[in-house]
Design a protein around this nucleic acid. Structure first.
Length: 597
RNA sequence: GGUUCCGUAGCUCAGUUGGAUAGAGCAACAGCCUUCUAAGCUGUGGGUCGAGCGUUCGAAUCGCUCCGGAAUCACCA
């Protein structure tokens, strides 16, 4: 039982003894004591007054007195305006650190064989252009979510569905055919995904040109969009692809390979990975078969032009197309197929989709369709929806060239880390390789933390200047604290100072130290909460609070230089444990921590 | 127009199941390195929690109505 549970029990006992009535647990409201008051945990007395039939002050005094006498956890209390502030005994926290010290996995639940099996889909790129800032948020959230779920003892399967087919890829392919002159990543010296993306842009330019020519010739804009010759060519190419035209397939394979090798570099740098990768070119057929089956069973219906639809008007939604009139698949068809294959392959209890909130409607429809098809596992679908990333000047727009490229961004962050570290002279004495690695850790730490500290459901603004700041509530600030701790521990070790002896309960610890202990104590419950809420941001903000508190302590107290041996031992253990929690917590965000910086 | 989400300091964001005088960082200003890493610490200023009404001992938090912003309702993905 943790502290909250112990106290809830004890308070219930107190009320029963004092007032002769066993209260329901939900009126026992415990919260952290605000900074301005003395105490660690506060009981709100107001809901208890109808049982006690006494004033808030008196009720608080009664319960506080009982807890102090009977629990051994509460060493003192005060009651202010109906808030009973309980002082948790030093011994309780000392006992905690004595037990948890040296556990490198503190905060993590061990994997359990009977654990819930959760499949998490994230990343899900298209293969026609390189990854950008929006993908970065997706990848970081997905990867962090997986780590958090694993830390909660879940069995996690990380998966990626690569959208390797469709009209958008055909656009790049067509443009390459027309204007590529046989260029390859090798011949051009470009990363494959960037090269393919360049042709996608070329297509778009030509398409726009053709549209304006048609409009100038008197055609409506909408019609021009359909009639532009290059678009017709791309559509023709897609049809050839679906009928397995060997030349088109060969080109498609080649260009997709370029993109994959490019993605691999980006993924590796971002520190994300997958247990199983699916390709829509494999799954869409299954989806199509299922849709046709559903049509036979009467779950769907066909229009005169032979397109297939599902009617969701009774569920408060609209009608949705599942197969085009020419028989080709749409996005929904593919997702139906993918979900089925995943069930066949892994039969997960839950399938989590980390996908932007622009697709909220899509996933509502997907779950509904799978349910209508009679799949019991449809209930296990969960869309982890997250907000868009915007720039200070507004949305990223590829046609206006304001898209922030993932590779460029990482380069910039690492360059800035290098410039700053060199200016501060922080890494002198390290080898060249060690320096490079540290720049990387810091630059990526800044980027990842900046994105993950924000509540996923919210849209966020990414200001390249601000995100590059390394002070305040940032990744480097946290990493710096870690490096300081490591430095202290190294110095202790160099001086032959051993630590880790059990701390005697009678040791006299200060408020700041106690407050750090209390925060450390909370880590496992924060991990659990982050898992329940699918929110890496909870971890990020927790670490920041811990680190801020520790830095104040570090500033005000001596650790190695403390003359009292017991106290020195305690402070070293405390520092060591803060380091462990920083490392573990940042690990859940996919952020590394440096030994020196 | 329907549906969903968001609105907290100049800017970027915290604020678990309703609880005390709403918190950080950035930016501005003023301090602290002969002492374990100053990428740090301390202080000052900065708020009608979008607005109103309601629920109650108590609302940034819950409900309703507005206002503002975003997404979506495609034979795009």
């Amino acid at each position: 039982m943790n502290l909250n549970e112990l106290l809830t029990d004890a308070v219930a006992g107190a009320i029963n003894t004092l007032y002769g009535m066993r209260p329901s647990l939900d009126i026992i409201q415990l919260q952290k004591t605000r900074k301005d008051f003395e105490g660690n945990i506060t009981l709100v007395t107001f809901p208890l007054l109808r049982i006690s039939k006494k004033s808030p002050e008196e009720t608080g005094a009664n319960i506080g007195g009982y807890l102090k006498e009977n629990t051994g956890i509460v060493s003192g209390f005060n009651c202010v305006k109906g808030f009973l502030n309980l002082i948790v005994s030093d011994a309780y926290y000392i006992n905690f650190i004595n037990n948890s010290f040296g556990n490198n996995f503190y905060g993590f639940k061990p994997p359990d064989t009977g654990a819930e099996k959760i499949m998490v889909e994230y990343s899900s790129p298209n293969t026609n252009k390189p990854l950008h800032l929006g993908h970065i948020r997706n990848n970081l959230l997905g990867n962090s979510l997986c780590r958090i779920l694993e830390a909660n003892g879940k069995h996690v399967i990380k998966t990626n569905i690569v959208n390797d087919r469709g009209i958008h890829i055909c656009k790049s392919m067509l443009a390459w055919q027309k204007w590529g002159n046989g260029q390859t990543p090798e011949s051009s010296g470009k990363k494959g995904d960037h090269l393919v993306g360049d042709f996608y842009v070329k297509f778009d330019l030509e398409y726009k040109k053709q549209i304006s020519e048609l409009v100038a010739g008197g055609m409506q804009e909408e019609a021009a969009g359909r009639e532009a010759p290059i678009m017709k060519e791309a559509q023709e190419m897609l049809r050839k692809w679906e009928s397995r035209d060997s030349q088109v397939l060969e080109l498609w394979e080649m260009m997709n390979q370029w993109v994959y090798s490019g993605f691999d570099v980006t993924y590796k740098r971002l520190g994300v990975g997958f247990d199983k990768i699916y390709y829509e070119s494999d799954t869409y057929i299954i989806g199509r078969d299922t849709v046709l089956e559903g049509l036979k069973k009467g779950v769907f219906y066909q229009r005169p032009d032979s397109s297939v639809w599902v009617d969701l008007t009774k569920d408060g939604l609209d009608e949705k197309i599942l197969l085009r009139s020419d028989g080709t698949s749409v996005y929904m068809t593919q997702d139906i197929g993918t979900a089925q294959i995943r069930q066949t392959d892994f039969s997960p209890d839950k399938m989590v989709y980390v996908v932007g909130n622009e697709q909220n409607y899509h996933f509502k429809v997907l779950a509904l369709i799978l349910d209508k098809l009679g799949y019991s596992w449809a209930k296990g679908l969960y869309h982890m929806s997250y907000g868009m990333v915007e720039l200070p000047e507004g949305k990223m727009k590829s046609r206006e060239g304001t898209v922030v490229d993932a590779d460029d961004l990482m380069d910039d962050m690492i360059d800035t880390a290098k410039a700053m570290a060199d200016e501060l002279g922080k890494l002198e004495g390290l080898t060249g390789l060690e320096k490079e690695d540290t720049y990387r850790i810091i630059g990526l730490g800044a980027l990842k933390y900046f994105i993950l500290k924000v509540d996923p459901v919210k849209n966020m603004v990414f200001d390249p200047r601000e995100s590059i700041d390394f002070n305040g509530n940032t990744g480097p600030f946290i990493q710096y604290t870690y490096a300081r701790i490591r430095s202290v521990l190294r110095k202790a070790s160099d001086a032959g100072i051993m630590f880790g002896e059990k701390i005697p309960e009678r040791i006299n610890i200060g408020n700041k130290e106690k407050s750090i202990l209390a925060i450390l104590y909370d880590f496992p419950s924060v991990v659990a909460e982050a898992g329940n809420n699918f929110s890496p941001a909870l971890i990020a903000n927790y670490i920041y609070d811990l680190v801020k508190e520790y830095n104040q302590f570090y500033h005000d107290f001596s650790i190695i230089k403390e003359s009292d041996g017991n106290l020195r031992n305690f402070r070293l253990m405390l520092s060591d444990m803060v380091g462990t929690v920083i490392k573990n917590g940042m690990g859940l965000l996919g952020i590394e921590v440096p030994e020196r910086m």
